[in-house]
Structures are given as structure tokens and as C-alpha cells.
């Protein structure tokens, strides 16, 4: 090994390494410049452009963008019933998906983290993650097949005299719940797995029955993880517009309005686009109070 020889100390590579070692700032700036530039220019830059263009208007005959400042778009967002309805519906869908994910994920994670034999746990985690390796579109089209007329859902519910939900809002919520479920299971699984067993013992020791221990110890300690998972499920649902196109029937969400306005009224699309950004920022602020962001 040349590196162990004393002469190696004078090679240019070594000298550079020494320089970097001594100058912490230099090291950090070399390391972070590229990613920071990417983040600042591409990400924050485009957000800024989006926000600024939301204050422009269009010539309604030519669809040309007119660069004159006005708050008309935001005014329209808040006053036009259709817009208001779609915005509220989108937030409602995101919340419904989040709640459903949490309700389904908790027992699953409880099983994978505390009930299943330790040997099986890593395998179960992999099993939870496998759907994430499949293409988004494949999964959504699979749900389209399941929910279509005389599809799997109809066929399975027929013996009970029921039919599948068909395409529409419930189908959208179901599909989104399926899509984002792993993002909820994983943080809850981790939190439950790290929950010290002797806290459960201590609770029982002080007289608590299992239900009480669950409410007073397990739930509060896992809540930050649920909030962390909800950040994913909520923001991913709010930003989605493809699922609703495929299984949503005539249902419109914010994404669809943005999409349909891009050609005709770009500033309006931009104004619509800022809505999820603002909602998610508010959601993050709310979640920060639960301590969820430190467990992300």
C-alpha cells in the first residue's frame, strides 16, 4: 500500500486532502455548492416564477399572457364557487386519504413491528415496500381494472347484493390510499419497533390494562410518526391529478384545474398551483408542533 509510506504525504492528492481537512468551510462549500444551486435555482426559482406569474393576467381572446400586476386570479379562486368547491374537495380527499392510511397502517405496522417474529420483520418491511418499486401508472390502471364495470370489485361484492364503487370520488380516495400506504406504514413501523418494551411493562406494572397502556403510552409515543407519515400521504394526495383522471370519473381536483388551465390561462393555473403549496406549508407548520418533523 503506497498510502502507508511516508513519501505519500507529499502527493498532490494527499496535499489536497490535507487542505480540505484543515479548512472546514472550503470542504463544506465544495460539497454543497452543486446541490444547493440545484435547489435554489431550479426548485425555489420555479416556485418564485409560479408565484409571480399567478399575479399576471391573460388576454381572453388570444390567451396571451399580459404582464400586468393584479390579484384578480386569487380573487377568482376565493369567490368562484367551482374553484372553491374543487379546492375544498382536494383538501378533503387529502385528509380522507391520510386518515384512511393511518387507520390501515397502524394495525399493519403493529403486526410487523411487535407481533411478527423478529426473524420475519425485515422481510415484512420489504413486502410493504415492494409496491413502491412498481410503476405508478401500472398500479393506478390495475385499480381501474378492479373498479371497472364487472371488474373484480363488482364481482366480489355481487354475492352480497352490492356493487363496486365504480369510478368517482370514492374510487379516487381508495386508489390514493393504496398508493401512499407504505409511506404511512414505514414511519409507524419504525416508531413501534423502537418503543422500549419496558415502558409497556412499566404501564402494566402500575395497574394499566392493555387498552389503557395503548392509549396512554403507545399512541402518544407513536403519534409523531403518524404525523410524519401524514406529511407524505397528505402532500402526495394533494398534488396528484393522474389518479383522479384514471379512476375519478368526472371528479375534478386542483391538479385537473391546473392542467386544464395551462393552455388557456397560464396565470390562473399558476394561482391554482400555489394553493397546494400554501396548504402544504400550513400543514407542515401544524405538524411541526407535534414534533413529527424531527422524526422524518
Amino acid at each position: 500500500m503506497t498510502a502507508t509510506q511516508p513519501a505519500a504525504g507529499r502527493t498532490p492528492v494527499r496535499r489536497l486532502a490535507g487542505l480540505l481537512h484543515r479548512h472546514r468551510r472550503l470542504r463544506l462549500s465544495l460539497l454543497l455548492t452543486a446541490p444547493l444551486l440545484w435547489l435554489a435555482v431550479l426548485y425555489l426559482g420555479s416556485l418564485a416564477v409560479l408565484f409571480v406569474s399567478a399575479f399576471w393576467t391573460t388576454n381572453s381572446f388570444t390567451s396571451e399572457v399580459v404582464r400586468v400586476w393584479s390579484t384578480d386570479n386569487f380573487h377568482a379562486l376565493l369567490t368562484t364557487p367551482v374553484f372553491r368547491q374543487v379546492i375544498l374537495r382536494s383538501i378533503g380527499v387529502a385528509l380522507a386519504v391520510t386518515v384512511l392510511c393511518a387507520l390501515i397502517a397502524f394495525p399493519l405496522a403493529f403486526f410487523t413491528a411487535r407481533v411478527a417474529r423478529p426473524r420475519w420483520r425485515p422481510l415484512l418491511v420489504v413486502a410493504i415496500l415492494t409496491p413502491l418499486w412498481a410503476s405508478y401508472l401500472v398500479k393506478v390502471y390495475a385499480w381501474r381494472l378492479i373498479l371497472s364495470q364487472d371488474g373484480l370489485a363488482d364481482w366480489m361484492l355481487k354475492p352480497f347484493g352490492l356493487g363496486g364503487p365504480g369510478f368517482g370520488l370514492p374510487a379516487t380516495i381508495m386508489t390514493l390510499t393504496y398508493l401512499w400506504l407504505p409511506y404511512m406504514i414505514l414511519p409507524i413501523h419504525t416508531a413501534l419497533e423502537q418503543l422500549p418494551a419496558n415502558l409497556l411493562d412499566a404501564s402494566a406494572d402500575l395497574g394499566a390494562k392493555p387498552g389503557r397502556t395503548f392509549r396512554a403510552v403507545v399512541l402518544p409515543m407513536v403519534l409523531p410518526a403518524v404525523a410524519a407519515g401524514s406529511v407524505f400521504t397528505f402532500s402526495l394526495s394533494l398534488g396528484d391529478y393522474i389518479t383522479v383522471q384514471i379512476v375519478g370519473g368526472k371528479t375534478q381536483l386542483i391538479g385537473n384545474l391546473v392542467y386544464s388551465n395551462i393552455e388557456l390561462n397560464l396565470p390562473m393555473a399558476a394561482a391554482l398551483g400555489t394553493v397546494p403549496v400554501v396548504v402544504i406549508v400550513l400543514y407542515l407548520l401544524a405538524m411541526r408542533r407535534t414534533g413529527a418533523l424531527s422524526s422524518l
Partner: peptide, 20 residues
């Protein structure tokens, strides 16, 4: 009997205080 049915309390080696 389960722990919550016994008139016994334990001081655990690592205390097991509820952190929340």
C-alpha cells in the same frame, strides 16, 4: 395473573419513565 392484577410495583433497572 397479569401484572396489573398484582399488588406489586417495580423500579426498573433503566427506570422506564414515560418520556412523553
Amino acid at each position: 395473573l397479569a401484572p396489573f392484577e398484582r399488588d406489586v410495583h417495580t423500579v426498573f433497572q433503566d427506570y422506564a419513565l414515560f418520556p412523553h
